[in-house]
Simulated assay, not measured.
Amino acid sequence: MYFDLDGTLCTYDESFESLFRRAVSPHGTPTDAAYEAYVERLLTALDRCEPDPYRRGFETVTEEIDLDATPAALAANYCDIEVDATVVTADAKRVLDTVAATNPTGIITNGDGEQQRAKLEFHGLDDRVDEVLVSNSHGVRKPDRELFELAKARLDADEFVYVGDSYDEDIVGVREAGFRTVYVDGGSVAAEDAAAADGIVSSVGELLDDDSLPAALEGPFASQA
């Protein structure tokens, strides 16, 4: 059984724009244009699985505004701030522990390998799973089937389930690789609008007590005595 990271196991207590401004403000005045340029370049780097995506994003920022710090230093500061802003609930950890007690368990996440693994280590999630696959470390991103096929090869199981919060990347894409799916929709999507998912919950913590999951998915999430 695999889980997504951002938006599924991990959330944020601050907006990304606020994190950006906190990283930049000690070195100059952040602007809306600088933030927009940063986001565009960062997302492009992540989509292309380029190395050092945050540094590349901040290189664009230093072209927009005068700052007394290098792109590498700004990126390192931002990444630390972002990790500190992550939130993993006790329920999310309990889900991982419960599933891992009886099933091979892993995490598949898009993003920069170093940054995503820093989040896992910060919250002790890396010790709770058997495998971690980060898109940029493998040169392919969800919903590309290649990443999910690689995940299947990493864990010994007859059937695979994936839990994620992005309908296109985590549900539609992974079903093509033969996974069953649980969609974490944040309570905002009607069941009929998420027809490709085998189960729907509003938060990952509901996996341990949600009676609406199909019988085929209930077993892996059953509480252990």
Rank of each mutant, 00 (worst) to 15 (best):
T70G: 12
A73F: 14
L74F: 14
A75I: 00
A76N: 07
N77Y: 10
Y78A: 05
Y78H: 04
Y78P: 05
I81S: 04
I81R: 00
A85H: 06
T86R: 04
T86H: 12
V87C: 09
V87Y: 01
T89E: 01
A92V: 07
R94W: 09
T98C: 12
A100R: 09
A101Q: 03
A101P: 03
N103G: 05
P104E: 06
T105K: 03
G106Q: 00
G106M: 04
G106T: 01
I107P: 04
I107W: 02
T109E: 07
G111Y: 13
G113F: 00
G113Q: 02
G113E: 02
E114L: 11
Q115L: 15
Q115C: 13
Q115I: 12
K119D: 10
L120C: 06
E121T: 14
E121R: 14
E121A: 14
H123D: 00
G124T: 01
L125Q: 01
R128M: 13
V129T: 00
E131I: 15
E131D: 15
V132D: 05
V134A: 06
S135L: 12
N136R: 04
S137L: 15
S137W: 04
R141H: 08
P143C: 02
D144S: 07
R145I: 15
R145T: 12
L147Y: 07
L147I: 15
F148C: 10
E149N: 01
E149M: 02
A151K: 00
A151H: 04
A151C: 11
A151D: 02
K152G: 08
A153P: 08
A153F: 10
R154N: 15
R154I: 14
L155R: 00
L155V: 11
D156E: 12
D156N: 11
A157D: 08
D158Y: 11
E159S: 15
Y162R: 00
V163N: 01
V163F: 00
G164S: 07
G164T: 03
